[in-house]
Design a protein around this nucleic acid. Structure first.
Lengths: 341, 341
DNA sequence: CTGTTAGCGCTTTCAG
DNA sequence: CTGAAAGCGCTAACAG
């Protein structure tokens, strides 16, 4: 477990060392790697051979310092139990393809931790940032716009003005569409369950979409039929208990996340209630399990992987200096009509 | 979207600039940040004020270059549909607490992409690496041990020799224990379903544990009752179809992942089969949904979050120069006995 | 407590 | 096609 020759003061393995072994100058080694055409084939071959045999890996930090980093910073909520992982995968794939590295900070960010995380990200001098949802604290927003960096927020695309660019779906529209879909299927008594909305624009927009649809369709709306629960399957079960106590004739529960919906369906099984006959359930997200669930889950499909990809893509375009970029990129969504509602 | 004064050649915002504004030397600014005790309170206050008002954030790369990075590199399979996200959260939390950043590369690594990813990680001169499962390619193993870096593999703790350290559970033991548990409950005809085992040590050990238990307990073992399916809920359903055709009297299916088990349970519902009466199902992982599932899933709980934490913790200990570190850290596990089997 | 000097390892710029 | 010089922004080492 000890460095072989690495600790030896002088011959530290770097371009200098490779260069001296081959008998060229360090800059030629650099060029052999980054700009092969500017080096004669023979020289290049000898350099590459030396690099290979020495097991040399160029120091990215030194490189980034001189020529500007190829890092995209991102800040995500806990990856567990959410579709965020898919987005991150989309970002990674797109970023790597373009020769960028993702630097990821994850955690449960309140408005203050948010600022701290952004600072940490900026310390690495990223070429740009991708953030989940709109940044909350004004202080954090200020830091970001002062940084002059391209910033893409993956978020609600309705309402609020992004710091720079936003990619996402209109949560308002998705929720409106699902509510209308349920109404069209004949359901009249509809409840809405979400995870805690405070400080979450996306969830807020979903609820607004739900309420607006209820009003537009002249359905009975009652605040009693809106509840907030933790984002766990148990939360879905709890919501069901609360709601059916409040309205025993409830016909359908629209959950703002598949996790909740799946939990609620399990609670129905437990009670021996047939879904959707006794009570219908709709979700949001279209996770893997949704299609295989019994009964298969009616839900909203949001292109999460694509959102990640698009976020990186737009970031790179801005970096490339493209002028005519849209500020807000609203991607499509689908209502997936299956058996549960 | 334009940098404010940042582009101005000279007054680029760095410690030098802060220093000149305050009227001290750059090193004093550095010390005010990293070693506050070595700077007089007044000087420090003035420096901090200047930093604050300028919105200065120190360049981590420059810092890391001079004084050694505070990065821990890690390489993970796709975060979707697996417990890996929890491990990563554990790593992050522990790393941040110690002032380290996690650098995460995710992707679907075959033996060759594996080597590429490791190289990419090493380019950032991390203080150490945490890898998922044992590194496969000999070439990659060579690079790693030549690097002289602390490497923690989160992996099977039985068999193979780690490059440096390994943290995990004995998958052999967990699978053996679950099989024995099922046998103790009276099940005799037991099938084993896993996701593709090729190149995955952990899964292989689970299967070996299953087989050994079957032998030790003198139960009827047949290769026919072992199948491999993709890691999706549909995979679980497919496995059930295949297995019950091969043995209509099958009593219980032990799935090497909760995702499969949950899928299999849905397939039972679909057929109107009572779980566990008509067919019992056991899983592996104890995901969130397992407890809320109907019927609640009997499964193996593995301390994933803790595995991530321990991995970082051991890495840091090695960095701190602790000599007496175990090569293999085997964490405990629990058989969670619920209703499905 | 504060400053000076000398790099970390690479790459830009300007000359051959 | 190749090289010499200079410096990215920070901090270790050694003075004061």
């Amino acid at each position: 477990m000890n460095a072989p020759e690495k600790s030896a003061g002088r011959g530290r393995l770097g371009m200098r060392e490779i260069a001296s072994r081959v008998g060229v100058s360090p800059i030629t080694v650099s060029r052999a790697l980054k700009d092969p055409d500017k080096v004669s084939p023979e020289t290049r071959a000898r350099i590459l051979a030396a690099i290979e045999s020495a097991g040399f890996i160029p120091n990215q930090m030194a490189s980034s310092m001189r020529s500007g980093g190829r890092i995209i910073g991102t800040m995500v909520p806990p990856l567990i139990n959410s579709g965020i992982a898919e987005q991150v995968q989309g970002m990674s794939d797109e970023a790597h393809a373009a020769g960028y590295q993702m630097l990821l900070i994850q955690g449960d960010f309140g408005a203050s931790a948010e600022e701290k995380a952004i600072r940490a990200l900026l310390g690495w001098r990223p070429a740009g940032l991708i953030l989940q949802a709109f940044v909350q604290s004004p202080q954090a927003r200020k830091i970001l716009s002062a940084s002059g960096l391209p910033v893409v927020e993956i978020s609600e695309t309705r309402g609020r003005r992004p710091i720079d660019m936003a990619v996402g779906v209109s949560n308002f529209e998705t929720a409106y569409a699902m509510t209308a879909h349920l109404a069209a299927k004949g359901y009249k008594r509809i409840a809405f369950v979400s995870t805690p909305i405070h400080g979450n624009d996306r969830l807020r927009q979903r609820r607004i979409g739900f309420r607006r649809a209820m009003a537009d369709l002249h359905l009975h709306y009652s605040p009693d039929l809106e509840v907030e629960v933790p984002i766990t399957p148990e939360g879905g079960g709890d919501a069901l208990r609360i709601l059916t106590e409040r309205d025993p004739k409830l016909q359908v529960i629209f959950c703002s996340s598949d996790t909740l919906a799946i939990g609620a369906v399990q609670e129905c099984h437990r009670r021996g209630w047939k879904v959707p006959d006794r009570l219908a359930i709709a979700g949001y997200g279209d996770v893997d399990l949704a299609a295989q669930l019994f009964p298969a889950l009616t839900t909203v499909r949001v292109p999460r992987y694509e959102m990640g990809r698009q976020a990186v893509r737009h970031l790179l375009r801005r970096l490339a200096g493209e002028a005519e970029l849209p500020t807000i990129v609203s991607l499509g969504f689908q209502i997936i009509d299956r058996e549960s509602a």
